[in-house]
């Protein structure tokens, strides 16, 4: 492809969408997991619930204004074309964004909500109604979590399928891309929550971090064990695919892929997190958090997630059949 037609806006869109999906997923997980009737990790759950809506909202907002005719974006919802990943994705994203907003609302405490409504102009008719409205939240949160799971996963997958479904671009055209993007999304979400928890001034407990770290280590490993087959499988595949992979194995995007994604964005954080986990694994002692290491690991994961999407969006368009 001569000049790429999809550029950073798409990269951001895919990244932010995935990030929200990840954050929501982890938050929902923490809501759903219970120890004696109580959400096991309420702080993570709440942090995630409140964070989840904003990245995806921003991403979609940016994308719409990148459209050739943004005021026609409603046409996306005038039709549903199951053949078109973007059509499916748009619906997914819309519903998902809605859900995350409702969910965030559900996680607000009563006074937080009142403070929020207090900001609304007094004359608004439904203002009072909203203020008097106090749903049975505990139940709500769990239901929302349950409903939310598939959509979060869906969005995570969609960001990959959008590219993976394009036969014309050998670099993309494998189902591994969807999985890779999903796990990368979840891992970024987890990392975002690690950040949030580390930076949170309030009290923390090790269990939370142990949970987040375990999750993240698993996700990173999954991601890693998709990247490997992706490369190997590609190498054994048809010429066009080999040529496409050439872009990251000794081509225009090699540095970005290895020097920015794989090593610093995947292996380094994995190493750090395992290092922090060392005592637990070796049985003696518990996980201990070094603030800066934690921040670094989480930061790198998120950075890596971004680079991954950058590499795929650009290298993919550069690939093609002869």
């Amino acid at each position: 492809m001569h000049e790429p037609v999809w550029e950073f806006l798409i990269v951001n869109y895919l990244f932010l969408g995935g990030l929200s999906a990840g954050i929501f997923f982890v938050s929902a997980l923490c809501t759903w997991l219970q120890t004696d009737g109580q959400a096991s990790y309420p702080r993570i759950a709440r942090a995630g619930a409140l964070m989840a809506p904003w990245p995806v909202a921003l991403g979609s907002f940016l994308l719409i204004f990148d459209l050739g005719k943004w005021w026609r974006f409603w046409k996306l919802f005038a039709t549903f074309r199951w053949e078109s990943p973007m059509s499916i994705g748009s619906w997914l994203l819309m519903i998902f964004t809605g859900l995350t907003l409702v969910n965030a609302y559900a996680w607000l405490t009563e006074e937080e909500r009142n403070r929020l409504f207090a900001k609304l102009p007094a004359k608004l008719p439904f203002r009072q109604k909203l203020m008097d409205f106090h749903p049975e939240l505990a139940a709500w949160k769990r239901n929302l979590a349950m409903i939310g799971f598939p959509f979060a996963v869906g969005v995570g997958i969609y960001t990959g399928v959008l590219l993976g479904a394009v036969q014309a671009r050998p670099f993309w055209n494998t189902n591994l891309v969807a999985q890779l993007f999903l796990f990368s999304a979840l891992s970024s979400g987890t990392a975002a929550l690690i950040l949030a928890r580390v930076l949170d001034k309030g009290e923390k407990d090790l269990a939370e971090f142990r949970f987040l770290y375990t999750l993240d280590i698993c996700l990173i490993l999954l991601e890693f064990f998709i990247v490997l087959p992706y490369l190997i499988h590609g190498q054994l595949s048809v010429l066009a695919v080999r040529e496409a992979l050439g872009l990251v194995l000794g081509g225009r995007y090699t540095f970005a892929f290895w020097g920015l994604f794989l090593v610093p964005g995947l292996l380094a954080p994995l190493a750090i997190e395992l290092w922090e986990f060392r005592p637990v694994l070796s049985g003696k002692g518990t996980l201990h958090i070094t603030r800066n290491l934690a921040l670094t690991a989480a930061g790198l994961v998120i950075f890596g997630g971004y680079v991954l999407r950058y590499v795929f969006v650009f290298a993919g368009q550069a690939s093609g059949f002869k």
Binding site: T79, R81, M86
Partner: peptide, 28 residues
Amino acid sequence: RVCPTGASFQREDGIVEVREADCIGCKY
């Protein structure tokens, strides 16, 4: 196949066209 709005379509006689009014310019 990938067009989310159906702006890209194929006529019965095989000709593939873009219906301007429906195209949102997503470049997919």
